[in-house]
Design a protein around this nucleic acid. Structure first.
Length: 633
DNA sequence: GAGGTATAG
DNA sequence: TTTTCTATACCTC
């Protein structure tokens, strides 16, 4: 009588496994230094503890705690700085690739650095077909269709690991389809639990990462059910998934008990609207430091069974300009444990790459330039890492890092073998201005970002130029004059609490096998050097020649991009120009030039960099450089 | 595409 | 939501 609407239709034909690596950041450090495992250990970014191991949690520390509070509470705590995400990103990618190797469908999706969804439906179905129902306890799980020796032995007569509910009588109904759920869901979940246990074990053997795992039929259920037993445990959500004459479904029982704010994809805004409706007033939102502490408790059940609740009422509540069109339907599904979203297939390259830093005070031009330079260096390095592949083996992403500015012949050779597999079409600068104080002296806090975009200049795709040369050129020619200036037209008066640079709009490049345009990069560069001298006498705005287009394409020119300055600043060939007056070296960062990038161990001294740079700069670059100094001086 | 919001870890 | 450093999806223009 209370349940006005039947709820959205279930589809439980999939088996989805959700992995959540236990205190991932801490685990990465612990792998580097195993002695940390036995100690209370935490990872810090800025003034907060972003995660800590279970030894630290046992002593009362928790995620997102302020560092000084953590130290006060537990003076023995070991703390490491984790603002540079490189090691976490690398470990995450390694784990991801490892798990990806077990899927047949390539439906493997990463959520943040420490979570992975896998759709194992095809593997489970295959193994169900091969099952001998007379010998379930001595079954063999096949991980490979073509090689029957690859797999593991398991007991298919029972689920492995924890279950929800705890004391369910799985089983025995093994050969008979359960009357409450269509077909063989109990059996398939059981196989899912064994597959999960195996992968968890492999993950830990391989890389030392333990995981908390959930097994169910969709993303939201498998993610939530994993949380029931943490850490180093797995939990399977057991049937019945549909309510029947004997009682409520395990899905409703499980989901109903959650606070609305704990349901994935129901974020703060949506949760507040839902709370407001069942409370009949606006729910208090609390600015205290305790995370998730003081929001008023409204459970999924309170909302699901609220008078008149259903997609129609949700439409009235949640439909607003800017909101996703299908949010009401989605939300109604989530309240009922229904989630039809697919596990995304592995894409190979990210959609965007960004680097950012936050600041207590950043209000001077010269400091902004320095920070942007550092962020740009990191960004270009990451682009090289994540958006290029080895020419011979496009899948092998050997981490070629440029740890210094030296352009050695050996490094050049390795670089020449790399080619771009995707190109970002756009460069975006975002800032978070610290809000000015109100007339009454208070400060309205806002965390909104503002941003401007510009086409990504093709010169950043030149793999033969040291990263910080490219970064400096990017800052001087694009980021400062084109982007920063538009965000903050005044020379002073602003104060930034955050700066972010982002490469976005990845365009995949044809993986043209052996005949690829990028096969002879070295030769092309020489050809391009020749073009440089030709260019000097040309008007910069003149349309590029056909030949220049080919070169630009070779080293990664984006079709449609306006600027086509794909040039290599070769000191020997550059136009001799007078240096600018009144330039402080401090305003130019520490750029080191290779005299000859085929024999780059002989370096020019790092002093007088700005002077040297302008001296060797082609004419077109001078314009931008001059404008840059006009701006910051 | 450009700029913003919402959500996630 | 606020504290970090990201990433994705989706909205309007």
């Amino acid at each position: 009588m209370q349940n006005a609407l039947p709820g959205p239709r279930r589809y439980d034909g999939r088996i989805i496994i959700h992995f959540d690596y236990d205190c991932f950041y801490a685990a990465v450090f612990e792998k580097e230094n195993p002695s940390l495992k036995a100690l209370p250990f935490a990872v810090q970014q800025k003034q907060i503890i972003v995660t800590c191991n279970y030894e630290a949690r046992r002593r009362g520390l928790y995620k997102l705690q302020l560092v000084h509070e953590a130290r006060k509470h537990c003076p023995e705590v070991i703390i490491k700085l984790g603002e540079d995400l490189t090691r976490f990103r690398d470990a995450s990618k390694e784990n991801y690739n490892f798990l990806q190797g077990y899927t047949w469908s390539n439906k493997v999706e990463r959520l943040g650095f420490d979570e992975v969804f896998m759709d194992m439906t095809d593997i489970i179905d295959y193994n169900v077909e091969l099952l001998n129902f007379h010998h379930l306890p001595t079954s063999y799980f096949h991980l490979d269709r073509s090689d029957p020796t690859i797999g593991f032995s398991y007991d298919a007569s029972s689920v492995v690991g924890e279950t929800y509910p705890k004391d369910c009588a799985d089983l025995l109904a093994s050969s008979q389809p359960a009357p409450d759920d269509s077909g063989d869901l109990p059996l398939r979940l059981r196989l899912g639990s064994h597959l999960a246990r195996y992968l968890r074990h492999e993950l830990e053997q391989r890389g030392g990462y333990s995981a908390t795992v959930g097994i169910s039929t969709n993303k939201v259920l498998s993610k939530l059910i994993g949380n029931v037993n943490k850490p180093k445990r797995q939990t399977t959500l057991m049937p019945p998934y549909n309510s029947n004459i004997h009682g409520e479904s395990n899905v409703n029982a499980f989901i109903d008990a959650h606070d609305i704010g704990k349901i994935p994809n129901i974020g703060f805004k949506t949760a507040q609207k839902l709370r407001a409706h069942v409370l009949g007033r606006s729910p208090g939102f609390d600015t205290g430091l305790v995370y998730g502490g003081t929001t008023e408790k409204v459970s999924v059940k309170d909302i699901r069974l609220f008078n008149g609740m259903g997609p129609t009422l949700l439409r009235r509540m949640l439909q607003s300009p800017g909101a996703p069109r299908d949010l009401p339907e989605k939300a109604w599904g989530l309240l009922n444990g229904v989630d039809d979203t697919e596990v995304a297939k592995g894409k190979g390259v990210p959609q965007q790459i960004s680097m950012e830093d936050s600041y207590i005070r950043l209000d001077e031009m010269s400091e902004v330039v320095r920070e942007l330079q550092m962020l740009s260096v990191s960004l270009i390095k990451r682009m090289r890492l994540d958006l290029t592949a080895d020419n011979d083996d496009p899948d092998a992403n050997d981490p070629l890092e440029d740890t210094n500015n030296v352009q050695t012949a050996a490094r050049f050779e390795r670089m020449s073998k790399r080619k771009w597999i995707a190109l970002p079409s756009s460069l975006r600068l975002s800032t978070r201005p610290r809000p000015p104080l109100n007339p009454d002296g208070t400060r309205t806090r806002t965390f909104a970002r503002i941003s401007k975009s510009h086409p990504m200049p093709s010169f950043v795709f030149n793999l033969a130029i040291p990263v910080d040369i490219l970064a400096r050129r990017l800052v001087e020619e694009i980021i400062m004059p084109q982007l920063f200036r538009k965000l903050h037209p005044e020379k002073s008066g602003w104060n930034l609490s955050l700066v972010n640079v982002c490469a976005t709009g990845m365009a995949m490049r044809a993986s043209d096998g052996k005949e690829g345009v990028g096969r002879d990069i070295k030769g092309m560069f020489q050809k391009q050097d020749h073009l440089l001298s030709e260019w000097k006498v040309e008007d910069v705005d003149r349309p590029p020649s056909q030949e220049r287009n080919e070169i630009a394409e070779t080293i990664g020119h984006v079709v449609g991009a306006k600027q086509d300055l794909s040039l290599i600043p070769r000191p020997q060939q550059a136009t001799e120009l007078g240096s600018e007056d009144g330039l402080g070296v401090s305003q130019c960062s520490n750029v080191i030039f290779a005299d000859d990038w085929d024999n780059g161990d002989e370096m020019q001294d790092a002093s007088e960099v700005c002077k040297s740079f302008t001296a060797v700069m082609p004419a077109f670059a001078m314009v931008a450089h001059k404008r840059f100094h006009d701006m910051i001086d």
